[in-house]
Amino acid sequence: MTAATETHSEHDHSHDDHAQHGMSNAGYIRIALILAAMTALEVSTYYVDFGALFMPVLIILMVVKFFIVVSYFMHLKFDNKLFSFCFYAGLFLAVMVYVIALATFKFFAA
């Protein structure tokens, strides 16, 4: 570790001791509670009529949950930006190409 830090000081801060960059176990449990609450809200749409809010609420909750897990449980928020690039490049391309492809079926046909 120390040798690495000496020769590559400019890049190093994210490599060593990711534990310190992450969160405490209590923090993780708090995150899990938030996720549980959001899931409960999601499931409640099955029982309670949300009207026009139904779709937006579900989609927003899904996206927020996704990013909470990715950012905190998967440490992406604290880790080197390169990891974010690797993952979000794939995610971005996936959303882009598949949404466009589905759109050609749904909206632009005929």
Partner: peptide, 11 residues
């Protein structure tokens, strides 16, 4: 050491 300082496996 790696060029970026990041673990090969993790990348």
């Amino acid at each position: 050491t790696t060029t970026t300082g990041l673990s090969n496996n993790k990348v």
